[in-house]
Each structure stands twice: as C-alpha cells, then as structure tokens.
Design a protein around this nucleic acid. Structure first.
Length: 443
DNA sequence: TCTGGGGTCCTAGGACCC
DNA sequence: TCTGGGGTCCTAGGACCC
C-alpha cells in the first residue's frame, strides 16, 4: 500500500509560516523576475487566477489590491521541505521524495483503519512542528494514491486531510468523477488526444484496450492505465539515485547583447553546476550551453542555439567546467542579436567512487580536486560566496529582478526553531543590493 | 513595461557497422 | 529498368512531472 503526502499550496504555506497575517487572504508566489504565478492560496484560486499566470495579467483578472504577490524564496522552502521529509521518514518505510512538496512511502499495516490512524497523526505532527498543511492519500498504486490525496484536498468535510482509496466500488465511483487530465501522467497533449476520442474521465480511460492506449501514447500511458486498475508498475527514482543531468539557467532581468555580460552569466551557471556536483559526490564529462533571445519581443530578431562539449575526463571543478562552457558559448554566440536567457547543463555524470582511477590520473586533476575541496571547506564555514570565480564576484548585469520579497525579518520571531545561520541564508536573497557592496569590499 | 526553473523518460530517425 | 537485411548507438525533440 502506497501513501502520497502532498503539501497544500506549498510555497504560499511556507510564506504563511513566517507571516500569519497572510492567512485567509489571496496570496500568490512568483517565479524568477517576478514573472509567473507558481503557487496560489485557496483564496487566490477562488479568484480564478490560473497557475502560470503572468504577474502583470493579475491586474486584468482581479482587483490587484486584493492579491498579495510575493517573490519566491526557495532556500527557505527547501529547508521547510527537508523538515517535513524528515518527519515522514521517521514513520514511512521506503520514503521516495518526489519533489520539494511531495513524497511517496509504503505503509506498515495490513489493516487500513490502522494506516488511516497513523497518517492522521502524521498530518497533525507536521502541522504542529513545521506549520505547513499536508494532505495524504493512500491506495494500492502510486497513481491511485495521488488521486486519493487529490480527493483528500478537495473534500471540505474531510478534516483530518487523509483519504484511503481501497474499496473497489469506491475506486470506480471516484474514477468516473475524475477528469482525464487530472490523472498523473496525462498532460495537455494526451488530454487533447483522449478528448478527441471521447475519453473525458479516468473511468472511461481504464475501459480502453491497452493496445489502443499504446497507439495513442507510449508505454508510459499503458503503465498509467495499469496503475489506475490497481496494478503497481511505476517506480520512482528516489533521491539517493544520482542525477543524470544538472542544469542551471536564468531568464535575465532584461535583454542583453554584450558578449562579456552573457559570458559572466555562463561562468556563474557553470560554477553552480560544479558546486552541486561536488555536493553530490559526482563529476560530469559533458557540458551543454544554450542561449536564446526574447521570444515575446516581436521587434527584435530572434536567435537561439545550443552547443555541447565533451571534456577530456570527468570533473567537478568549477574552473574546468567554466572553461569548457565558454568554449561552447563562443561557438554559438552571434553578434547583432539580443539575448534574454542562458543556461548550462552538465551530463554524463558519474559518482566519484566510480571514478577514483580516472580522476587522479593527471597531476593537474589532483591539484584541481584538492583546490576545490579547500574552497568548499572555506565556503561552507564562512559563507557561500567567500571564494568564487572572478567574473561572478559582483552581481551581473544579467541577474533577475525580484522586488516582492515579504518583510521576513520582521516576522521571523514567529518561528522559534530558527538558528542565526538559517536567518542569514533566508535573508541573503533579500539583500542583493547589500551583497553588492559586500562583494566589492571582498574584492 | 511585464511571460520560471529543473528534471525524467521514450521514440523516431540518422549514422554506422557487417 | 533493376540497388539487401539486420543490428546498434546516438541525438534531437516531444511528452510528462513538480
């Protein structure tokens, strides 16, 4: 029996932990550059604000004075997420962290009454210790558990926020009322295809012959159908399985044409990829760079391109990765165009354990590895940005604009469990302007 | 004026091999 | 005129997720 714990309106709920005055009001959290809505409170949903809605359009949808718009503070969300996962991990067997606000786990009891009781206490514990509301669904497969948590969330009479879908008759009834695009694994395209065949509910979908389902989609769609029928066939690559790619990219605060400014961004992205590789005890042997114009600007010529470069050996060195990322960038950069977004992706990733022989091959590799280890030690001890590659010392021209941070420091005392260290991490994003000065002093 | 970021898996088709 | 058959590997692009 699988359970899925899903945080309600996660980013908004995190903001509310630190700022209870947001309770009961329509709140949205925005993406980078304060661009799109990426989380909505129930009140904001009720106003008809759709997911992904551009911030400037909220004024068209609603009375803007009604809606509180906040810039995302992902360091804080990650921290609260970790706390929730720890609590789930204490009870749940085989915890699979699926995303920042969701995790699957298996249930210990044969008896569903007992499982229900256990989950109810978990929901209460998370509310009490972390302050974030969580809904939990459980069923025979992950896909059904997902639907169950959906039901738990929607049902206003269900105070304990736990829902089990275990009775065959009830499952059928629920599936007949679930719209096909609310099923996990069926997105926009497949929804359109299925609708055109007259399939609009999960109940109708499970009646289709699997050969037909395979023709509409692919093997994944067949698996989704099996899961809805109660046959377990989707596995989740859990957190301890290594990443296959690591990406770092940003939409710039405005369009940029100067080559050096974009190069600075590329170096910064490569540096972040390298840092994450080292945190995971891994190294990569390929790096891809992409750059693109602003596809919303009809008045500017549009150009986008990408380039991959293979490194001579696996590395997690910021300098190696930045150097090769710049080679790739030089390949694709064109004069006379403007750019709005760029990114760096590292692939062909292996754990350092697998690479012991390779990585210590050359004199240079050994020195680089030692140097990066030393830099990590210093940055971990004295702060993330004590030693960085030179072009990333100051805040780049490309840095995204975010102007809607909640006044966190004023509300922080609501949260007693926070150490000074977290405090500074949470505030670091707010204080970009201060950062700039600090960095100049460091220089 | 203003439109996110970071992942995974599958498939078709081309290159290449014998 | 007429031009094999089968296999593997790689990559780009499309679909999905949060």
């Amino acid at each position: 029996m699988y359970a899925l714990a899903d945080c309600n309106n996660f980013f908004v709920s995190c903001e509310r932990v630190f700022n209870p005055s947001l309770n009961g009001r329509p709140v949205v959290v925005l993406s980078g550059n304060d661009g799109c809505v990426i989380a909505r409170s129930n009140e904001a949903k009720a106003l008809g604000i759709p997911m992904g809605c551009p911030a400037f359009q909220i004024k068209k949808h609603t009375n803007p004075a009604n809606v509180i718009m906040l810039s995302g503070r992902h360091v804080m969300y990650r921290d609260l997420s970790n706390r929730i996962m720890r609590i789930l991990g204490e009870v749940g067997l085989n915890l699979e962290v699926y995303s920042v606000d969701e995790a699957f786990f298996t249930l210990p009891y044969e008896d569903n009454e007992q499982n229900h009781k256990l989950l109810t206490s978990l929901v209460k514990k998370i509310q009490q210790y972390v302050g974030v509301p969580v809904s939990i669904g459980f069923a025979q497969t992950r896909t059904l558990a997902k639907i169950a948590s959906h039901v738990a969330k929607k049902d206003k009479n269900n105070d304990d926020r736990v829902k089990g879908l275990t009775d065959a008759g009830e499952i059928n009834q629920v599936l007949n009322n679930i719209k096909i695009n609310d099923v996990w694994g069926i997105g926009r395209r497949l929804n359109a295809k299925l609708l055109s065949c007259g399939i609009d509910t999960a109940g109708k979908f499970i009646m289709l012959p699997s050969s037909y389902v395979q023709r509409i989609g692919n093997i994944n769609l067949v698996r989704t159908q099996q899961e809805l029928k109660g046959i377990d066939c989707i596995s989740i690559s859990s957190v301890d399985i290594a990443h296959k790619s690591i990406m770092n990219s940003r939409t710039f605060g405005h369009v940029i044409s100067k080559k050096q400014e974009i190069a600075d961004a590329i170096i910064s992205f490569a540096q972040s990829c390298a840092r994450q590789l080292r945190q995971e005890g891994a190294a990569a042997q390929a790096v891809t760079v992409y750059i693109r114009g602003d596809h919303f600007r009809q008045d500017l010529p549009f150009y986008s391109n990408s380039c991959s470069v293979r490194l001579p050996s696996h590395t997690a060195s910021a300098m190696d990765l930045a150097k090769h990322a710049l080679l790739a960038f030089n390949n694709i950069y064109r004069e006379n165009f403007t750019y709005r977004k760029a990114g760096v992706m590292v692939t062909d990733i292996k754990s350092v354990d697998e690479l012991q022989l390779d990585i210590f091959n050359g004199e240079n590799d050994v020195r680089q590895a030692k140097l990066m280890t030393a830099i990590d030690k210093i940055n971990n001890r004295y702060g993330k940005k004590q030693i960085v590659l030179a072009p990333t010392l100051t805040r780049g021209e490309w840095a995204p604009q975010q102007n809607h941070f909640a006044p966190l420091s004023k509300t922080l005392h609501f949260y007693t469990g926070m150490s000074p260290r977290y405090f500074s991490a949470y505030n670091s994003i707010e204080q970009r302007e201060d950062d700039k000065e600090e960095n100049e002093m460091d220089t």
